[in-house]
Design a protein around this nucleic acid. Structure first.
Lengths: 145, 145
DNA sequence: AAGTGTAATTAGAATAATTCTAAATTAATT
DNA sequence: AATTAATTTAGAATTATTCTAATTACACTT
């Protein structure tokens, strides 16, 4: 697990802005999420982490994920009350959960969509975050026709 | 707790369509959610239910809520991994969670917003549900100026 | 009306994700 | 080297929800 120099800088800056320390464990977890761009749960991250950092504890996973979210390096994804998942994609996007496979897909959206949504709020409502979650199935594409 | 004749019909039809029975408990819980249009948790519904139906059990609350959701009479609202909340508003709308008070507000949205969102999905993605959740604060309106 | 079968309700145990607690470790600073 | 503050750690505690098995309610047949 290794962060590119560019991401290392982003990582350090983001944490230091919130006066948090860029520790081994935090970097390890961040690089792990970045390198496999899926949407792992804390427990999946725990399992993956121990392959290369066997001494890490589950509490640390939770602590580190919290600080990474706080400092804006990753975001949380929640569907119903399933385990929270973590997402390194910071571009404006929505999530689509395929109910057949459980896979979560990023769906890129132009910023304008979010602007339109905000326009429907009462003027004194000040959103800090907007989550858009689709839930459905993915139709197989038929190739022989 | 009492359902208006109109809602009683809606209630019966919705359940019978899924071959579920319109039981006392299901009706009680449904009317309770309808009459106070907030977004209660299962536990809040449990407390409210027992005021007029003291023998109801928490498992029944969960069972009934599940059947009501299944039959399309209410929908679930989830923010992060907080307790699931239940919403009787079936018009297209989003939810806004005020982080200061914990209150959830319905935000009505024209169907066109949902159509636009769907257009951004790959053609073979077939959404069954779309949740839009805002998270933020509500600015006090200043009256003396 | 009594018996049968199926669905719904119930109480309480079990589960699972997450948070908490208190001790140990680390790193920076005097 | 000693001091301090932040972080990590293991394991216990919490909490919402689901599960299990027994009971109850109700529609349908005799």
């Amino acid at each position: 697990m290794h962060l590119s120099p560019a991401y290392k800088t982003i990582f350090k800056n983001a944490l230091e802005k919130s006066s948090l320390k860029p520790t081994k464990q935090r970097e390890h977890i961040f690089s792990l999420i970045l390198n496999k761009k899926d949407h792992p749960t804390a427990d999946e991250i725990y399992t993956r982490s121990r392959e290369t950092m066997p001494s890490i504890s589950l509490a640390t996973i939770y602590n580190c994920l919290e600080t990474l979210v706080e400092s804006g390096l990753i975001r949380q994804v929640n569907f119903e009350r399933e385990s929270t998942r973590y997402c390194p994609n910071l571009k404006p996007h929505a999530h689509f959960l395929c109910k057949d496979t459980g896979t979560i897909y990023d769906v890129d959206l132009p910023a304008s969509v979010f602007d339109t949504l905000k326009k429907h709020l009462p003027k004194n409502f000040q959103p800090e975050q907007i989550d858009i979650n689709f839930n459905g199935s993915i139709k197989k594409i038929n190739n022989n026709s």
